[in-house]
Write a protein that binds this DNA or RNA. Structure first.
Lengths: 117, 117
DNA sequence: CGGTATCCAAGTCGATACTG
DNA sequence: CAGTATCGACTTGGATACCG
């Protein structure tokens, strides 16, 4: 359905054909850690290591990959400081902000689901 | 993070550890076609073949797999008729109904995203 | 501090053919 | 009509080590 070429560093949405808007959105926020990353950033901008500390279990490689994906898809912005060593701040774009309430409701449903078991 | 056993027919949520409610929800609705399936069923109950007709490009095997997953996770119900040949009706559970507005907003965001490109 | 490079395992989907 | 069975391919995530 999506006969696309992806590279080593995740899939660039622009090269992926998504006839369906639901499929498109799910592809953008559907990475294993993207939901948590976005819900963290929806509270405030964060530096790389701060995000990492908040997500125990994620490796550097994977965190970087997911951040790159989100950046490519226009959901977050990346900003380096001039310090040495440099720090990198991540924060939501306007597009990303629009996702926040959706993530919230997803989280709420998940919580309800869990207490239902 | 989720050290689980999955079988040939998809993953049973009950055996998967999801510390995070977002991750849990994404895992339940994150299959490639689950969003579309759920948004179809949110309009009305449908027979297997009707669903299949509405989703060109999905194979029987994959449709069945995704339906099984959704059933296992308590999102949809499966009901056979007594006809010959039998027909199978699928419809949302209460839990599934609660997902409908979320899917709607996901679809809306996806549409806004697409016109933004 | 914030990454890359390699290599590997698991998950997920698809094509195709066949069945009660 | 509504599935199963087999097999193969691609995608995604993870372990580990190293770098400017």
């Amino acid at each position: 359905m999506s006969g696309f070429k992806s590279d080593q560093y995740g899939t660039c949405t622009l090269t992926v054909k998504h006839a369906c808007p639901i499929e498109l959105t799910m592809h953008i926020i559907g990475g294993k850690w993207k939901g948590i990353i976005l819900s963290l950033l929806s509270q405030s901008p964060m530096y790389y290591n701060a995000i990492r500390r908040e997500i125990p279990g994620i490796t550097q490689r994977i965190l970087t990959l997911q951040l790159r994906d989100l950046e490519k898809d226009g959901i977050i912005k990346r900003e380096e400081t001039n310090d040495t060593p440099k720090k990198v701040l991540y924060y939501l774009t306007a597009l990303g902000e629009d996702l926040a309430p959706i993530l919230k409701s997803i989280e709420k449903w998940g919580n309800a689901y869990m207490s239902n078991q």
